[in-house]
């Protein structure tokens, strides 16, 4: 057993026992995710306000988005979140081999999401959906440009979070290869699982705002 694996089982001096230490880590992660929720919340509020103000322009802009890529990416992210939730389950029972496999699958799916997002962005740029002087319909449709501002900031923020998540999931795979996890020693996997699923959750909110809302107009 490596030194890092021994460290996973250790109880730091400020905690009474392992449960207390694990509970504190989980609580701290949820507190962090709550602050993240409000961070994304400001973005959702902006979308709602401008969507009401420029309803038809937002509906028109929504129709310009890459629906197929967005939907495929949602399937990919949901599947990755499911895979890592399974990894958490196996980490608790000490099946590190499964943790390595599922973490690798999660990281691969995350990378696939990233690649498809780059493809989507390139299509958006080619279609002139970048706010500013070179927007496809200059001098009009101010509301459409606002939608694309939301789109670029929202997807950009999300992909930044996803990139951090891919690194964290890779770190878990690396640790699991060294048999780091087992009963009472799965907290790092649980913490990373919370982060990964949170990134998935934020995409589940962004997806209908970007690709579906207002298609009826």
């Amino acid at each position: 057993m490596s030194s890092s694996a021994r460290a996973d089982g250790a109880v730091e001096f400020q905690f009474h026992d392992r449960d207390y230490q694990s509970g504190t880590a989980l609580s701290g992660m949820w507190l962090f995710l709550s602050s993240e929720l409000l961070f994304f919340g400001g973005l959702f509020l902006c979308w709602a306000c401008y969507r009401i103000e420029y309803a038809s322009a937002f509906a028109a802009a929504t129709r310009e988005t890459e629906f197929a890529i967005g939907t495929l990416n949602t399937v990919i992210l949901l599947t990755s979140s499911f895979a890592f939730a399974c990894a958490v389950h196996f980490a608790r029972s000490g099946n590190n081999r499964r943790v390595v496999q599922l973490s690798a699958a999660t990281a691969l799916l995350g990378t696939l999401f990233f690649g498809l997002k780059l493809l989507e962005w390139s299509k958006d740029i080619a279609a002139g959906n970048v706010p500013g002087a070179h927007f496809r319909t200059p001098g009009q449709a101010g509301g459409e440009q606002l939608f694309w501002v939301f789109y670029w900031i929202g997807t950009g923020l999300h992909i930044a979070h996803l990139s951090v998540g891919i690194g964290l999931v890779g770190w878990i795979a690396w640790r699991a290869r060294r048999e780091a996890f087992g009963p009472g020693r799965a907290t790092p996997v649980e913490i990373v699982g919370l982060y990964w699923s949170f990134v998935d959750m934020m995409w589940l909110i962004l997806y209908p705002l970007i690709y579906l809302a207002g298609r009826s107009a």
């Binding site: 949820w30 409000l38 499911f82």
Partner: peptide, 30 residues
């Protein structure tokens, strides 16, 4: 996702307090 993948019901009470707190302030914000 929050209930089944993130297991918001699991862990100490502080987990549920922080989760509910985040949701509450999100409601206030929006």
């Amino acid at each position: 996702v929050a209930v089944f993948f993130m297991e918001v019901g699991r862990g100490p009470g502080a987990v549920r307090v922080f989760a509910a707190w985040g949701l509450f302030w999100l409601m206030v914000l929006i």
